[in-house]
Amino acid sequence: MNNIIIPFPEIENFKFFMENEIDGFIMGIDGFSENFNYLVKEKNLKRICEILKEKNKKLYITLNKVCFNDKIESLRILLHKISKLHVNAVLFTDMAVLNIVNEDNLDINLIWDNTLVTNSKTINFLQKRGIEGFLCSFELTIDEYISIVKNTNCKGFIKLFGYSKMATSSRKLVSNYFEYAKIDKNPKRKYYFKDKKSKDDYIIVESDNTNFFSGKILNGLLEYKRLINENIDTTIILDDYLVPESSFYNVIEAFVALRNSPNDEDFAQKLKMVVDSNCYNNTYNGFLNKKTIFKVKNNE
């Protein structure tokens, strides 16, 4: 089964997405998650879960911030709350989550989400310790992803639309620079930085942390077609973070349309163009079809 999930939207857009053909939502929690246009407050969680259940939509909560030691007790309290809500799963990046869920015997399905999710062996290792799925790292090719899915019994998740997160620093890098350079601006959430050699643009966002994003938007619509055609059981994430709202509606429609007619090559190409044009053609394919190199010189 191929599921399409999107970030949980702001309340005013809620109804639109409820009636949409997407399968569910991925939700960020204020204080424990980042890189969402809208972070949910803990106090609103219960009510939202009830509404989603009524509409038969899946809900995945993502805890994608690294957890500092002084936040551990509040993480534990949050996980206890979540365990009572029976959400579909929690995506986690910090092993503290896995340990607390196991130690406290909490009823939570876990999906491992990390840049370290690059091979089936470690996914299988963690499956024995309680995870039921994984969100693969962004630098994997689609071939690598398919290979991993085939080599595990875990549920695979892959992001196929949105800006790609490149890195996170816990430092306030923009604020620090503005202070040093005496730039009289309040750091807003989004800036662009440019590599002086390649002249490529990237995005930098400062909030609690400083996050770095690709300058282009990943459009993996054709790779989604391949996953469907090859019967790869997967959940795909369409991510609207930093993407204009109006564009995102059309992107969702395109991916849903592809799922409904996955065998028509011309149609898929047209849908890809729809996604591209809705993103002002500022799209790319990420690493889905491009391997990264790691040995700069052969020192065998």
Partner: peptide, 23 residues
């Protein structure tokens, strides 16, 4: 490192060299 170790893909994106595999 400026960013969290093991979670930095700046090198991958900007030079196509995999930081988590020695590049």
């Amino acid at each position: 490192c400026t960013c969290y170790s093991g979670r930095c893909m700046l090198s991958n994106y900007m030079t196509n060299r995999d930081s988590n595999r020695g590049g």
